[in-house]
Each structure stands twice: as structure tokens, then as C-alpha cells.
Nucleic acid binder design. Sequence first.
DNA 1: TGTACATCAGTGAACGCGCGTTCACTGATGTAC
DNA 2: TGTACATCAGTGAACGCGCGTTCACTGATGTAC
Lengths: 210, 210
Amino acid sequence: MINIDATTSRLTQRQLQAVQTTADLKAAARVVFARQGYLNTKITDITSEAGRAAGSFYNHFEGKEEVLAALAVDIGADADEFASSPPDPPANTSTVSIHDSTRTHVAVFWHTYAANRDVFAAIEQASLANSAFAEQMRAFRAEQLQPWISWLTELAGRGARLPADPAVTAAMIAATAETMIQSWHGDPEIGIDSLTDFVAAGLSAGLDPR
Amino acid sequence: MINIDATTSRLTQRQLQAVQTTADLKAAARVVFARQGYLNTKITDITSEAGRAAGSFYNHFEGKEEVLAALAVDIGADADEFASSPPDPPANTSTVSIHDSTRTHVAVFWHTYAANRDVFAAIEQASLANSAFAEQMRAFRAEQLQPWISWLTELAGRGARLPADPAVTAAMIAATAETMIQSWHGDPEIGIDSLTDFVAAGLSAGLDPR
DNA sequence: TGTACATCAGTGAACGCGCGTTCACTGATGTAC
DNA sequence: TGTACATCAGTGAACGCGCGTTCACTGATGTAC
């Protein structure tokens, strides 16, 4: 059961009920996706986890993919939050070292991914099974990687030799990070440091370190 | 239609027929998996691609997963072949630079992955949908990464600071490589060089380059 | 070598399971007067 | 404020589609004598 915030105070009882059920279904979907994987989840698994009847589901979502898309939207807010609470005040870009700048990007990605690992995994599974959904999620993916792409483009402008163009390089770094986060069980800050060293070294190849 | 080699010369007509059909079904599965993805492939898609009746399938395989497992076994042979035709004669390990050694590993991985991209993608999809199959493929994955793991372990012994333990680091590098190969459309040798620079730099961090 | 029977790879229509989706129904909430 | 009716969120049994899987059948190949 999820509590609904104050912005819903003008709603009638009925509307509140519907909003609550939508939230419950989303929360239940998240739990079930995490437990048994998106592809192995039946609609009735979600509704029974939420304590609702099967038919109720279709009052709120058109299908399994739509719940997942709703969960993806919530991640965007998460990422913005992590990104907007930087450990260091933003300095003049050109004076920040590659290593420090890498760490900032790695840290945001790490926290966002770790907090939503199950949803990312579900999105991956849904995208593999359904190319229309994959297309729909492309914008979402691009948004996730945008900070990396912008920064890598700038790096390339400064003479760094990226292994591939900025968009592909960003995807490569994301894949590396995801693999590492999935099997990391210790202190996240140490993991972020290690990953930063690895990535920053790769990006610094052939570039005057500053 | 795939031709069967000379080792089958002792078989009766009937046995030859069966072997041929098995091969045709495997080849058809590969084509169909590549075209529409493993998860979206029906048994009858495979049989009709192979020009056989639906029922014939079950004379040769227990299900879709078994065809895929058979295709995976074939990849093993591929990888061995790429690995055993090294561009450079194997020198004394300790005198080979990290960069050169990285390139050798990257090249084998690149060629093996590129030649079997569709099968790797299918294995990934099947593993996501079915954890028992994922478990079954774990040995296969480990075999793919073994050369990396051995070498990374040695590197760590020489003082390199890997971002994570050798097995996880190998998986990270593989994820990076797969992402890059998937969107690489130019000369593979150039791609291999770029990827090598990127990975070798990351691995050399904190290590006396030799 | 020839004949009669056995075996087996292949066939494809049909069966039936699993699950997504519907829809007539309930009872609580909202509205009109 | 009270009453009568309308609406709507939620229910869950039942329907039906899609597809994996079976199995009685065919005809070619193999074997026995």
C-alpha cells in the first residue's frame, strides 16, 4: 500500500480509490517483476500481489507494457534528483579534471541504476520481446545517456580518442557500469571509485590529462 | 540446405536423412532467430523456414531451447578456431605488453561475437525468459570468458588495479565489447584497435606499463 | 536375387493448456431534485 | 436534509486465441529368409 501525496486532496473518494489502486498495481508490478522477471509475470500475478481482482487491472492499464512504461517514467524523476544533489559545487567545466568529471557522471548513473535495477531489467526484457516497445523506450534510454553523450562530445572536442562515437561510447560505458553494479555487494562509494578509475583511464588515453 | 561432411559416410540413407533434417532445422532456427528474435519465434516458424512439417521438429529436438543449445555448442568450435590462429606467435608472456595482450584477447572475442551475434542474442533472450536455461548456459559463458579471466588474474598479480574481481571485470569488458560490436559497421580491425586502446588504458591504470 | 514384412523419418490435422481479456454483476459513492 | 436514481471502481467466472505438442497415418528404406 502506497500513500498518495497531498496533490490529490481535491479528488473525490472514488477518484482517490482509483489513484490508490493504480499506485498499488504499479508497486505490485515492481515487486513481481523483481521476483520472477518481466517475461514470466502474468497479469494475474500482479493483481493478486496487489490484492485485486484480475479484471481490475484493465481499468488502469492497457497491458503489462503500460505498467512498465509508467514505472520507467518514475525513474526519470529519480535520476534528476540524484543529478541535482551533486557532492561538489559545479565548477568551471574546463578546470575540472577528467577523473573528477567522470566520477560525477558515474555516481549519478550508479545510484539511479542501483535504485531501479529491477525496472531496468524489466525494460530490457520487454524490449527484447517486443520491438515496438523497444522503440518506445528508446527516448527513455537516450534521456538516461544524454549527460554522458554531451560530456563525451566535449571531451572528443578536446582531443580525446573515444573508442567509438559519443553515443556508442556512452552505451559502452553504461553496459560496463551495469555489469559491475549487478555484481557489486560492498560499499557503493568504493565501487564508484573503482569504476571511475577504470573508465577515466580509458577516456584519458591519448589526451593530455588535466 | 547444409551439406553433411564425410564423417557421415557410413550412415544408412535413413540416418543420413535424419542428420540432414537436424542440420536444416538448426540452420533454419538461426535464420529465424536472427530475423524475428528468439522469443518471437514459434516452432512452426522454424519448421516452415526449413520446409518441414511441424511434427518433424520433435523427432530432432525436445523444444526451442534445445536447438539453441545445439547452436551454442557450434560457437565453441568457432572460438577455438579464432583463438588458435593468432596473428602473432605466442611469445613469453611476461615480455608481451598489456596493450598487445589486450589486443589478442579483444580480437578473438570480436571475431567470435561478430560471427555469431544472432546466436548470442538468442541465448541472452532465452536466459532472461528461463532461469533453468540460463543456468545451463552459465558453463558456456564461463568458457567464453575463461581466457580473459586467466589473464586478468595474472595482471592483478602483477599489481594492476582491476575495477572488480577478474570474473566481473571480464564480464564488464565483454559487455563493453558487445555494445561496441553491435553498432560497429566499419573495418573490424579498426574497431578492434579502438576498443583495445580503451580497454588497455583502463587496465593499465596504476600499473607500470610494460 | 526376389518377396514379404518391419521399421522409421516425415506429415499435418487436431487436441488441449495457459493465459490475456471481457463483461454482466455488485455495492459503494456521487448527484439531482 | 432526505430520497431516488446514476455512475463508477472493483469483481471473478468464463470465453477464446495462440501455439506447443501429439499421434495416427504414409511411403520410402531396410531386413529376413
